[in-house]
Design a protein around this nucleic acid. Structure first.
Lengths: 202, 202
DNA sequence: ACCTGAACACCGTTCAAGT
DNA sequence: ACCTGAACACCGTTCAAGT
């Protein structure tokens, strides 16, 4: 029919992304469908495929924006003269972010690309940027040993991720979300203390 | 048509579960469909619903068996007189198990029940049984403080889960799977050392 | 150029009808 | 009692046709 664009290409793109985000926040990845997006924005399903290659492409775009938002949240964490305190603050900011956007955050782990398709390069870049924030905070403890610093950053990242993952996945209520913060604090405090003892022993 | 059962009810159930497991191992949850299972076992789709309530019920059954297999694997870990070493061995056994069954293991985190439906009680019981293995290994360090012991067990469990999760989710290749074992060892060693220092300070 | 909507090849689940 | 297969209400994606 050739509806004379009531929306610019950019507006249409935002409309699709916003609507998709709402659907995911309401019901997770299972709540997202091309036809439902189309219904809500008042276009036909085919129109989505003028804007995005397919649903995976759309979801990756949403994931990219989510990583940007997390990066922004971490960027506001004030640095402390005590590296351990900086790390604790970063971990708590991460935890808070995931708890504020649980279904959206879960998307990062629910959604898988079809076998053979790789994650785009920009996605890896964003992840590495986030990890770099932790590495930077660890530098005062490790400026002589980048390999150990890198490992410590990954262990901390994965550890905090594990706690948040188990606390937001209702299916593993082993970690009640009320105590996630305690667990994160405990992890960071004792792990860093263990690292520090090792350094003193050197 | 009333095919005169060439399979007993029990055989049919196993056939469905085995075929479903194969589909998941090949392509993850996305590769599982009631119609595809039916095609492979040579029954009509409707027959699945004589055996299982629905696909969620089927998937939960597979998850239960998976948790049983993990429990079995952990049960063969020899206890050491050094609690830290027992924990390291348990963590490594967990890691190995998840790496041997990556897609099946991911099922536990990809699959979500529809909103409102709770995880069955037997599922929670199995999870708590697994956690109890870690708590038991920690007892020598903590027999006077069950609350701290419980927290330490949860932190270790979540931490190892986080490392394995990031290493098997191809989308977060921040943790190359080659180094997952190093990260697990590092986490357990330094976390326990940090705990231990605190105890000595008490 | 942009958008539609029918078409194709799929889903999960139910249930009357068959043996 | 067990099983079928049509039916219903959905999917993602493509693409000829319309304005």
């Amino acid at each position: 029919m050739g509806r004379r664009s009531v929306h610019t290409a950019e507006e249409l793109r935002e409309l699709i992304l916003d609507t998709s985000t709402e659907l995911i926040e309401a019901n997770g990845l299972a709540g997202l469908s091309a036809r439902e997006i189309a219904r809500r924005i008042g276009y036909s399903p085919g129109t989505l495929y003028n804007v995005f290659e397919n649903l995976d492409d759309l979801v990756l775009t949403i994931e990219g924006r989510l990583l940007d938002r997390l990066d922004l949240a971490l960027s506001t964490v004030p640095q402390s003269s005590n590296p351990a305190q900086t790390i604790v603050r970063l971990a708590q900011a991460y935890l808070q972010f995931t708890q504020e956007n649980p279904r959206l955050w879960n998307l990062l782990f629910e959604h898988h690309l079809p076998p053979g398709r790789d994650v785009p390069a920009w996605y890896q870049v964003k992840l590495e940027g986030l990890l770099a924030r932790i590495e930077t905070a660890l530098t005062p403890l490790y400026n002589h040993d980048p390999a150990s610093r890198s490992r410590a950053a990954r262990v901390l990242w994965a550890g905090v991720h594990g706690i948040t993952s188990l606390s937001t996945t209702e299916k593993l209520s082993i970690v009640p979300s009320a105590s996630a913060r305690d667990l994160v604090d405990d992890l960071v405090a004792h792990y860093l203390k263990g690292l520090n003892e090792r350094q003193l022993a050197d």
